[in-house]
Design a protein around this nucleic acid. Structure first.
Length: 468
RNA sequence: GCCGGGGUAACAUAGAGGCCAUGUGGCGGACUGCAGAUCCGCAGACGGGAGUUCAAAUCUCCCUCCCGGCCCCA
């Protein structure tokens, strides 16, 4: 079975569908970002890395992708946190946006094309609220709140696949604004309380409701209808559901063609979240583990399933990943020294096909990685038995590198050229000593290099070195 | 309660009717001056119960357990 086209699981239809972009060769993608009031944790990283992978794979397939991810920088939690610290909310959010970028860069995430902030999108937001009211889908209260009116919606719950009545029955008791016409109505504009950060609007000073910023930013930056809308599956309801309503109230058409949702990261059968206090900060994890290990851990499972984090799972990922790295480095050495016949192209082509079949099947990174392991085993075997030519090694490396352009799990660089030369000299001297059975001296070189963080490894195809 | 996703060997995960799953770990070999890496082999599995089928981890039904969502969320 060969999948020529990418298939994506669409939450809207609960099924995998062939991916056909609106405009041939182009993809518009919006992914919900974070509320910037604290550092990101591994659960956020999962979403970020997953959609980074999606972005990379779409580009790998030749699409011209416009990837937008927002920052929610106007929000109750930000205001509360800022009040605690006695600083301006926007100062607080700016700080966490800086940290977000630092961590995302450390995770080797390819940045989105645009990162709009709620605070800088007020014109678009106010305009959208006005349009909602003008089209009869919203109303302002005396207090200066604007609510989206659910009563005109016949098919609420398309993403959730639920009926309105069921949701009302299960909804928890929350403090309701008596001026709401229907308890399910949700705020698109919130009147400012005294002293709060606020922006002017026709309904008085206030700030946007949670859902409106995404609808407005999408329309502002990407247009009325986009190809892919992504986010964590905890956002399906109400956030994404309400985004759809808002946008449809204004444009008359639907918001996104493909809705993608990543599964939650769990810790001991619970979702990792700030409110549960069971989260691991990315900045802390990065002190213990390299970015590639974290990415490998997050991508070594299907993005839609749950992923249970536990003590030791990153260590295991590291061990697995080393196998790939070792093969990768062996191939690099082999490229320089190899001779002999070449029987590799069939194996490499097969691995490439398997890799792409899995990726085309709703971004099955786990399956795709398996194909990489299969390849490395074959390559290791062939290198050991002298069946791999330099050409074959080059082809295998090319495949690994193109796969890595999507996954981002291979070592970034192995140091600069000068170091390479010096270690090469030391390795040559050591080889000479070994030839003369002067093992005390040859071991000394190896040991001292190891102390310096460089490990030499003898192999059939020559000496290889790596940082440890 | 309603909706969605899961339960695969010691562990982490793919797979969605038949064909060798992948990695980590374990055991046994090979290679090696020693390290390391690598290779080969072995053990070990589809939550439970019915059914459909020549054939079910995969399809149907029932049961069970876990997680997420139901206006704080990636």
């Amino acid at each position: 079975m060969t999948l020529l086209t990418l298939r994506i699981y669409n939450t809207l239809t609960n099924s995998k569908e062939d991916f056909v972009p609106l405009e041939e060769g182009k993809v518009s993608m919006y992914v919900c970002g974070v509320t910037v009031y604290d550092d990101i944790h591994l659960g956020h990283a999962r979403s970020i890395v997953v959609f980074d992978m999606v972005n990379r794979y779409l580009r790998h397939k030749g699409y011209d992708v416009t990837h937008v991810t927002n920052f929610t920088d106007v929000d109750d939690k930000i205001i509360n946190r800022a009040n605690e610290e006695g600083i301006d909310p926007l100062e607080l959010s700016a700080r966490y946006i800086d940290r977000y970028f630092a961590e995302v860069d450390s995770l080797e995430v390819k940045r989105a094309d645009i990162y709009p902030k709620a605070s800088e999108s007020m014109d678009a937001i106010v305009r959208m609220v006005q349009d909602i009211i003008d089209n009869g889908y919203g109303y302002a209260t005396e207090d200066g709140n604007v609510y989206f009116s659910i009563d005109r919606i016949k098919d609420y719950g398309r993403l959730t696949n639920q009926r309105l009545e069921d949701m009302v029955a299960g909804s928890r008791d929350v403090m309701q604004d008596p001026q709401k016409r229907n308890p399910m109505d949700f705020a698109v504009w919130k009147a400012a309380k005294d002293g709060e950060v606020a922006w002017p609007s026709p309904w008085g000073d206030g700030r946007p409701g949670w859902h409106i910023e995404c609808s407005a930013m999408i329309r502002d930056r990407l247009g009325d209808l986009i190809d892919i809308h992504g986010g964590g599956n905890d956002l399906i309801f109400p956030h994404h559901e309400n985004e759809i309503l808002q946008t449809e109230a204004v444009t008359g058409g639907t918001l996104a063609r493909y809705w993608m949702h990543n599964g939650m990261l769990q810790v001991k059968d619970e979702k990792m979240s700030k409110s549960l206090g069971n989260f691991f900060r990315v900045s802390d994890l990065l002190r213990e583990h390299d970015a590639q290990t974290l990415r490998f851990y997050l991508l070594n499972t299907h993005y839609r399933g749950p992923l249970v984090y536990s003590e030791g799972s990153l260590e295991e990922s590291k061990s697995s990943l080393r196998r790939l790295w070792n093969a990768y480095r062996s191939l690099q050495s082999h490229l320089r020294t190899a001779s002999g016949p070449d029987h590799a192209s069939g194996i490499i082509d097969a691995a490439s096909q398997t890799f792409h079949e899995h990726m085309d099947d709703d971004f099955n990174t786990r399956g795709a990685i398996s194909a990489l392991f299969d390849l490395t085993r074959e390559m290791n075997r062939m290198m050991a038995s002298g069946e791999l030519s330099a050409t074959g090694a080059g082809e295998a490396l090319k495949l690994l590198e193109s796969a890595d352009a999507v996954l981002g799990i291979l070592p970034v660089t192995d140091g600069d050229g000068e170091l390479d030369i010096i270690i090469g000299i030391l390795a040559d001297v050591r080889q000479e000593l070994r030839g003369r059975k002067a093992f005390d001296l040859s071991d000394l070189i190896r040991d001292r290099l190891k102390e310096a963080g460089i490990q030499l490894e003898d192999g059939a195809e020559g000496v290889r070195w790596k940082r440890i």
